[in-house]
C-alpha cells in the first residue's frame, strides 16, 4: 500500500481515494461524480494524446486531466492487483 497522486496511478491499476486537495467547487463536483474518500478508482486508459486519463469510479467512466488528478491522493494496493 502506498500513497500517491491519482495522476501517477498506472493504467490497469486500482486504488482507493484518500483525499481531494482542490478548490471547494471542483471538489464538490468530483465527489458527486463518485470521487469520495474510500471510493475505488481504476485507471482505465489515457486519451490518445496522453492526457486526459479515463478513470472508472462507481461503475462510471470519468476523464480527468493530469493537472486535476494530481490533486487527488490515492492509496494503491499491491502492484497489478485489481
Amino acid at each position: 500500500m502506498s500513497l500517491k497522486a491519482l495522476s501517477e496511478l498506472k493504467i490497469g491499476h486500482t486504488a482507493t481515494v484518500e483525499e481531494l486537495k482542490l478548490p471547494d467547487e471542483v471538489q464538490h463536483h468530483l465527489m458527486h461524480m463518485g470521487f469520495t474518500p474510500e471510493a475505488l478508482v481504476l485507471a482505465v486508459r489515457r486519451a490518445p494524446t496522453g492526457d486526459p486519463t479515463v478513470y472508472a469510479v462507481d461503475g462510471m467512466e470519468v476523464a480527468l486531466r493530469r493537472e486535476t488528478a494530481r490533486w487527488i491522493s490515492v492509496r494503491e494496493f499491491e502492484e497489478g492487483s485489481r
Partner: peptide
C-alpha cells in the same frame, strides 16, 4: 483565467 477543470463523463 486559469482554465476550468476538465471533468468529462463518458
Amino acid at each position: 483565467a486559469s482554465s476550468a477543470p476538465f471533468i468529462l463523463e463518458l
